[in-house]
Amino acid sequence: MLASNSPRRRQLLTDLGLTYEVRLQEVDESFSEHLRRAEVAEYLAAHKAQAYRAGLAADEVVLTADTIVCLEDDVLNKPADEAEAIRMLTRLQGRAHDVFTGVCLLTGGGQQVVFSDQTRVHFRALTPTEIEFYVRQYRPLDKAGAYGAQDWIGMVAVTRLEGSYFNVMGLPVHRVWEELTKLMGGLLPA
């Protein structure tokens, strides 16, 4: 089961060849200020999974994930509005930042695996006009750091990645596959 409204996560799991159902619940996404970087992503993924624990059948696995963008130690979550999105992108332009995706796999039998993946993203300098165009045209208000690497801005601004591109999209599929394989005792038929 996928507990995410992200079309990108759905597409990535489909592309992996996994069969799943989407279930959604509202979960508070606040976190303690003492958590840093990857800890935030892992905490949020694990916290979301707990909302599904009671409803899991014995043979079910729920996958929850949370992606954050960090500029040094500042966590840039989803912007509240266009003005905040413009401020975030203005801070990110011309600099490198880190994207962390925390993932939690929780089984109906009570097994839980929590992990995160990190990707370093390098942005070229952007003009205010480019930033405003992107925010107004693509409305990235549902994206951590106010951008999607698969969008226009990813094509024109991302100069280099160190780590998984799919992690920046919202799901480190290589790690998800690896951990699901361990948890399930293999995913592909022998």
Score class of each variant (00 low, 15 high):
T64I: 11
E42Q: 04
Q112F: 05
T101A: 04
G108P: 13
C70A: 15
T90W: 11
V103H: 02
G110H: 10
G110Y: 14
Q93G: 01
A85I: 04
H34S: 08
D74W: 08
A54V: 08
L24E: 07
G108V: 10
A96T: 04
G108H: 12
H47K: 05
A80P: 00
V121I: 11
R53Y: 11
D59I: 13
E60K: 00
A38T: 09
Q111N: 10
Y43S: 06
E72L: 05
E21W: 09
L56P: 15
H97R: 08
Q50L: 03
F100V: 09
E82M: 07
R53N: 11
V113M: 14
E26C: 03
Y43K: 07
Q93Y: 01
L105C: 02
G110L: 15
A45D: 04
L35K: 15
R120H: 15
E26M: 06
G102E: 13
R87T: 13
Q93N: 06
E26P: 08
T64Q: 02
V62Y: 06
G109S: 15
L24T: 02
A54Q: 10
A49F: 03
R23W: 09
E33C: 12
R87K: 14
Q111W: 05
V62I: 14
D98K: 12
L56F: 12
R91I: 10
E29G: 06
V27A: 00
Q25E: 12
A51W: 01
L105Q: 03
E72I: 04
V61G: 14
D73R: 13
L63K: 00
L89E: 06
A58P: 15
K48H: 01
V114K: 02
E26K: 06
F31V: 02
R36H: 03
H47W: 04
E60N: 00
R36E: 05
S32L: 00
R37Y: 03
E82L: 09
G55D: 07
V69K: 14
K48C: 00
G55M: 06
T107Y: 09
V61P: 06
M88C: 08
F115M: 03
G102A: 13
E26Y: 02
R23C: 10
K48N: 01
V114C: 01
A38R: 14
L63T: 00
V114T: 06
E29Y: 08
Q112K: 11
T107Q: 14
R87H: 14
A83K: 09
A46M: 01
H34N: 12
R36N: 05
G109L: 09
S116N: 14
T119C: 15
R120D: 14
E26I: 03
D66P: 02
Q50C: 07
G110S: 09
D59R: 14
L63Y: 01
D81V: 04
L106P: 05
V113K: 09
Q93V: 01
E33W: 11
A85T: 09
F31Y: 15
L106W: 05
S116G: 06
E21F: 13
L44D: 00
E29N: 10
A83H: 07
V40P: 05
S32F: 00
T90S: 12
L35W: 07
V22Y: 01
E21R: 15
V75H: 15
G55C: 02
D98Q: 09
T64R: 03
A65T: 10
D73P: 03
A96C: 09
